[in-house]
Nucleic acid binder design. Structure first.
Lengths: 250, 250
DNA sequence: AAGTGGTCTAGACCACCGA
DNA sequence: CGGTGGTCTAGACCACTTC
């Protein structure tokens, strides 16, 4: 380990160990939810000290790639539906109470080439050719029984092959843990661009508001554990009583 | 240090050291921009090992309370105007380019008791009595010469005494480094609630748009280094060409 | 060359979990 | 009880800044 990999990428040993472990997770050697070998075993395998190995594990834990359980072991982080919502669903009422949203899938289809293949925007975000295969979904999300959000999702076809043939009803409310279980794609970070726009006729119908009403438009790009963009979605939502919440720095 | 403080709050030694250092910064013992004693000196003072002390300093660094300079020393983090904008100004164009905003202060005044003292909302956010002294500012912020944002700021009067007498023109564009220099109040985190509303007549006039146009409303509460709320602001902004940007997890 | 922070080690002990 | 992660130590050596 020591001298062998030193030149690969970044110098410090703990970073090399960290990247190696991350790669092994991404490769599927350790699936989400399974436990890694214990610290002393890993330290032995990598020929590094306890402290150096722990530093690698701690950073991966801070980045939500691993979960530590004192007395039990260290597991690959699993996206249960609660955690996924907690991390990625930024809408809540002012008092901070979070009602969990439900969703209804309206349609799913794939496109390629001239027939609804990747748009300019999609090819740019996913780093694929214009016209390459993409899969698109439309959903409506509800909160407290009321329609909240009119949602358009795009997925790169190469990664999510076959999802377009899944019956709509069997695609679960919480997509991200489904992605993890079905495609071994773990959503681990996202960027969002928020703006205020007028509800179009489509939004109006779905959200049961008048066209032209101000709605919050959230454009999200999601990244997997290795930082590759794997989902793009646009959500138009009304915000009476609800807010897009964000914490800065810390 | 060891046994003396162990019972104060949280158990681990490095946390006690961390909290002690944080408190000394808040007390003003080390002002923003000044260097702390070197690690060996601090370790000696606290009677802890090098590693334990470093762990405290590293966590404070990760929380942007300290800044480390290899070969030079460790300094109390300073909010230069660039950093403050980088951390707290979430508006940018889609391509990620950030034009720096400028601002124009329209008015500043203080109120207390029946005459514009703390509102219900303000007393709740600041934890002060309704009617207690507050200071309010109004500003317009520009980006690329165009009006972007109509802004209302509230400050607790007890903390920012005297600011209401400062001539409007001399209050700088970037408030947060001014707060730090003038009042030793370092803004270190914030929470924001974003919604979409219709521009009112005031917004319309200031932003040069039509009343009723959708605008992004950002309500922000800022916290100082010890987590005390010290500023509340409401910004209504048009978003043609600009977005409120947010990164989730990581 | 002296002084600072950054990395790494080897080993001790504690706190928690599960059989 | 044995095995896991969590804390803490003492000391070595490296990388960077400044004089």
């Amino acid at each position: 380990m020591k001298e062998a990999m030193r030149t690969l990428k970044s110098n410090p040993l703990y970073k090399l160990v960290k990247e190696s472990i991350l790669a092994r997770i991404a490769d599927g050697e350790w699936a989400p939810g399974t436990f890694l070998p214990c610290e002393t075993a890993l330290a032995g395998e990598y020929q590094v000290s306890h402290g150096t190995l722990r530093r690698a594990l701690n950073e991966l834990t801070r980045e939500h790639r691993l979960t530590r359980y004192q007395g039990k072991g260290t597991a690959v982080a699993i996206l249960d539906s609660h955690q996924a919502l907690f991390k990625f669903f930024q809408i809540r009422s002012k008092d901070g109470g979070r009602s969990l949203p439900t969703s209804k899938n309206l349609m799913i289809y794939s496109g390629v080439g001239d027939r609804e293949g990747a748009t300019e925007e999609e090819s740019r975000t996913f780093g694929i050719e214009p016209g390459a295969a993409v899969i698109r979904m439309r959903r409506v999300r509800f909160i407290d029984q009321r329609p909240l959000c009119n949602e358009y999702i795009s997925l790169p076809g190469a990664i999510f092959q076959g999802i377009e043939d899944v019956p709509l009803e069997t695609i679960p409310n919480t997509l991200y843990d489904y992605f993890q279980q079905r495609f071994n794609v773990t959503i681990s970070s996202a960027k969002e661009w928020v703006s205020a726009v007028r509800a179009d006729v489509d939004d109006a119908k779905v959200l049961e508001i008048e066209a032209g009403t101000p709605v919050l438009r959230v454009e999200r790009v999601c990244f997997d554990i290795m930082g590759k963009p794997v989902e793009r979605r646009v959500s138009n939502m009304h915000t009476d009583g609800y807010y897009y919440y964000s914490e800065l720095a810390g």
